[in-house]
Simulated assay, not measured.
Amino acid sequence: MNTSPDILCIGSVLWDIIGRSSVVMRVGSDVPGHITRVPGGVAMNIAMTLTRFGMTPALLSAIGRDPAGEELTEQAAAMGMIVDHLYHSDDLPTDNYMAVEGANGLIAAIADAHSLEQAGDKILRPLSDGSLGSEDAPYEGLVALDGNLTVELLRQIAHSPLFSKSDLRVAPASPGKADRLLALVGHPSATLYVNLEEASLLCHTDFPSSEAAAKGLIARGCKRVLVTDGGSSASEATGEDVITLTPPKVLVTRVTGAGDTFMAAHIASEREGMNRHDALERALFAAATYVSGEIPK
């Protein structure tokens, strides 16, 4: 196995507990369906997709020294991820995420990522102790950052010399945590991956389309952004122009992890040398394939 990472995935690595039903649901619904427990979290979801594109991601996260953490670490290693740099806590349990999805999309979700938040900058030690880098020799390469990190830690990353030579790719964990990304607005090497709702929250404006949202984020100070709007459109913008494409039409069977799949596929495509248009198109196809259920998780 390759022991040199192609990218660092920093953030939530946890267990996803997902209940899915094929019927339309509302508050109080009690319906038949299926419940699964699989590796998840934004950083893990991105890493899993990257391995399918032949990349070797290294995980930087907090994992408990409990049976759940041991199993999660073993599964990550079996999938081809580098797990040597994970922070294992004796006191904190392995995090969990629980969601309920119906035919009408995500009904409700709860993210219990308290261990990651409490671990703080301990998860970044490999970037300063020489394992992956140091202040004198900062890590040079791709870094996928997860909005589950605290505002304080994201601010630290934004100003830290440890990330001065990194290509930062940033995603919020959810609309409820989108404002945490404000710490990285204006960072010269940060690319933000958000959906339309998250873009609107960051700019305190309701945008009518992904193109308008992408332009709004650039005006807000972002250097580069990618904005998705479900099955309607997706836009990639720099300070110069905007590219907008329409995703393939598919039957949606799941939604949790779709944004992470999109982000990972886009990163992998650019790493392979694809131009902006082709990378966006391939990422949209990967996300559509994922939500259709054709790609297992």
Rank of each mutant, 00 (worst) to 15 (best):
V255F: 10
P208V: 09
L72E: 02
D206Q: 12
S166L: 01
E270H: 11
N148M: 10
L284T: 01
A264Q: 01
H34Q: 10
V291P: 02
S89K: 04
A213V: 07
G54Y: 10
G80P: 14
A265H: 03
R20S: 12
A111M: 13
V242N: 01
C203L: 01
A286T: 03
H187M: 04
A213W: 02
D90V: 14
L184N: 02
V42C: 11
S292V: 10
G257T: 06
A108Y: 11
A214S: 09
A214N: 06
V225H: 13
A286Q: 05
A288P: 00
A264F: 03
H187Q: 03
D95S: 10
S4G: 03
D84Q: 15
S292A: 14
T49H: 07
C203G: 03
D136P: 09
M44D: 10
M263H: 10
V38N: 05
L201C: 00
M81T: 08
R20W: 07
I18L: 14
G293S: 10
P126V: 11
D30H: 12
A103R: 13
S209P: 00
S21C: 14
L251I: 08
R276N: 10
P247N: 05
M1Q: 03
D91T: 15
L196V: 06
S174K: 02
G69C: 05
H266R: 06
I243N: 07
N96K: 11
G130M: 08
L145H: 08
A219L: 12
T246V: 14
I218L: 07
N104K: 08
I157M: 04
H204E: 09
N195V: 12
I18V: 15
K223Y: 08
L181D: 12
K177A: 05
L182A: 07
P248V: 14
G33K: 09
P248L: 12
I82H: 01
D167M: 04
D206H: 13
S61L: 00
P57V: 02
Y139A: 13
C9Y: 00
P247L: 06
G259P: 01
A103D: 14
S134M: 12
L202I: 02
E70N: 12
T256L: 01
L127I: 13
G69I: 03
D6I: 12
A286H: 09
R271W: 09
T261H: 14
L280T: 01
V185L: 11
L154S: 06
G40H: 04
P138M: 07
G141A: 08
L284M: 03
G147A: 07
V83L: 09
S292I: 11
V227C: 01
T51S: 09
A265V: 07
G221V: 02
L168H: 00
H159A: 15
